[in-house]
Design a protein around this nucleic acid. Sequence first.
DNA 1: GGTTGTAATGCAACTCGTTGCATAGTATTC
DNA 2: GAATACTATGCAACGAGTTGCATTACAACC
Lengths: 186, 186
Amino acid sequence: MALDHALLVSLLEKPSSGYELARRFDRSIGYFWHATHQQIYRVLARMEASQWIHADVRAGETAPDRKVFTVTKGGRAELSRWMAEPLDPEGTRNALMVKMRGAAFGDPRDLIAELEHHRATHANRLTCYRIIEARDFAGTLDPQRALQYMVHKAGLRFEQGWLEWCEEALDLLRSMKPVTQRRTTS
Amino acid sequence: MALDHALLVSLLEKPSSGYELARRFDRSIGYFWHATHQQIYRVLARMEASQWIHADVRAGETAPDRKVFTVTKGGRAELSRWMAEPLDPEGTRNALMVKMRGAAFGDPRDLIAELEHHRATHANRLTCYRIIEARDFAGTLDPQRALQYMVHKAGLRFEQGWLEWCEEALDLLRSMKPVTQRRTTS
DNA sequence: GGTTGTAATGCAACTCGTTGCATAGTATTC
DNA sequence: GAATACTATGCAACGAGTTGCATTACAACC
């Protein structure tokens, strides 16, 4: 599992409470890793028990006591251990691709609306990432920033890729005759 | 959940046994969906109970009785139901990106080997996909084929994207000074 | 003839991820 | 001053995914 390590990196970048992490995860590293507050709280509890992180309780400030977590030496050690361990490929999962192939067994044109929605989503994200790029990654960057930018660039690249693919797929679907009922090929 | 539906599509394309599905999943739809034989057997059992698929036991042929599954009318109905239901975005997860950001808290050059390995993997897959493209998707295609090709193209596009990104990231890492120990930014 | 390899199916146990709910204080709006 | 929304944390239960093991049969090798 790597949610642990994603959180360690995030906490090294900035010590935070669980709630704060949950929200930051919808941006930054979040392009490549999403987690709900539930998962985060559980993993934080586990990591505190393993003494990879240390909680600093700030009472009263806002509402219920805020627990701000910092990475300990043990946590840093665990992170380096994990960093050194080679990754295996990681299987992508994409239900849209399943739908594309499934479309052959119904009317392919029924997928048009879905694809248009995806195209719009990717276009939006792309715009958003470009704004962040201009704001946060202009000029010369220190090593940490440069690495973050490289991750950001992967985000840009993939949104762009999806966008182009959606266009291409829409062209295909629009060119197809309605109701191409196909039976199994067996 | 969509493993169910991925299997339905796969079975519509070609009725198969669990074992066969498990292997086919490492190719074709498998670029965008991976599952172990365990998951597959369990889902098949569940779907048989729901009468979405029907088992045809072929005894003796090979070793233990082979159960060849076919999609029933109920299964087709369920597939259309799912096809019509809109998808939500799907959060990607990529541990390599976590490592990239984590690299700022150790020696970034330690990641070079890892990235080279990824680059090689993506280059291999790309070659492999190109061979399949030339073999299976040349000339005019019927609607089902055309849809499969579109999925295949997504695979090509993303392998290409990763490959280029790996090159870019390697250039960055190689240009970085060894041992850039950084503390947290808090 | 015994070992190893591969096709084929499956159980059990565990961890990860998701969903729904609960609480509690603070801030804002009508 | 009551209702609504947001910050902040957490429990409980369930379902998805992973890992390790077990079984059976045929096929090939040495």
